[in-house]
């Protein structure tokens, strides 16, 4: 187990193994998102209360899931980097932050657009909405912090600490709908419990959520490989790679 972790922490080994996984991950993401989109947009039945505006759920919920999962992944990577000095964890954390910010933005944007026909307002200082906005600011903070240091090591440590502290916001987001029930409804989707909606509405949502997770993993691996080339450009194996034509 430890040798496995040590190997995984080696950029060279990571670079080789991720190359083998990536085509499958990208293919899975593309197929799942395509199937989920067509199913959700055209085939799932309209909601009896909300009509067709409920089809926003198929982008809103997966994006909101990812927004939170990516922040947790970033905090865990930060912890791994701080405790074991595994550089690849820091590279991955740096590369996933912009996607996390994008997902948070999508969740907020699609929620606002959905709110107009459903609640009659696009924004309210509801606990769920506010804590998601804070998540967006945390992402922006982590990204800005990395750019604010001239030394890479200080930048990495500062970003790791902010991610580890900011992760407190995640349980707040999760339970906000139960603690302060003002506007946003409680969770309607869970992978583990029995669906609270008809199966023909729930299936495409499950497919979209899985597709978004595959997308996140594929994008993070792809970008971490680029970051390896960037940071390890003076290493012999990277130079040999370049000599061979990538």
């Amino acid at each position: 187990m430890w040798t496995f972790i040590n190997k995984l922490g080696s950029p060279r080994w990571f670079y080789a193994i991720s190359a083998r996984l990536l085509p499958w991950l990208w293919a899975a993401a593309a197929v799942l998102i395509a199937v989920g989109s067509i199913w959700g947009l055209a085939f799932a039945p309209a909601d009896y209360q909300q009509g067709n505006s409920f089809r926003i759920i198929y982008v809103h919920v997966p994006a909101a899931f990812l927004a939170q999962s990516i922040f947790v992944a970033m905090a865990v990577s930060g912890l791994i980097f701080m405790v074991w000095k595994i550089k690849i964890a820091d590279m991955a954390a740096a590369m996933m932050a912009p996607l996390g910010a994008a997902m948070t933005f999508i969740a907020l944007f699609s929620g606002a657009v959905w709110g107009v026909p459903t609640w009659g307002t696009w924004w309210m200082w509801d606990a769920r909405l506010t804590s998601m906005l804070i998540l967006l600011f945390l992402y922006v903070g982590v990204i800005a912090l990395r750019g604010a240091f001239s030394s890479r090591d200080s930048a990495s440590r500062a970003a790791s600490v902010l991610a580890m502290v900011g992760v407190i916001n995640i349980p707040i987001i999760k339970y906000s709908v139960d603690w302060w029930y003002t506007l946003h409804q409680p969770a309607t989707f869970s992978v583990t419990s029995r669906p609270a909606m008809p199966l023909e509405m729930w299936m495409p949502l499950l497919i979209m959520v899985l597709g978004f997770y595959c997308f996140f993993i594929a994008l993070t691996l792809t970008r971490t490989r680029s970051e390896i080339l960037r940071r390890e450009s003076t290493k012999r194996w990277v130079r040999e790679l370049a000599g061979e034509g990538g």
């Binding site: 009509g51 982008v59 809103h60 657009v113 107009v116 997308f215 994008l219 970008r223």
Partner: peptide, 30 residues
């Protein structure tokens, strides 16, 4: 979309644009 076209399509367009943009950015970077 049963009269909900502006809401449904803007939310979906924003999502797909950002997903596609992320892929293109990662490819360009590499």
């Amino acid at each position: 979309m049963g009269g909900h076209a502006p809401y449904v399509w803007s939310a979906w367009a924003m999502t797909l644009t950002l997903l596609l943009g992320s892929v293109l950015h990662a490819r360009h970077e590499r």
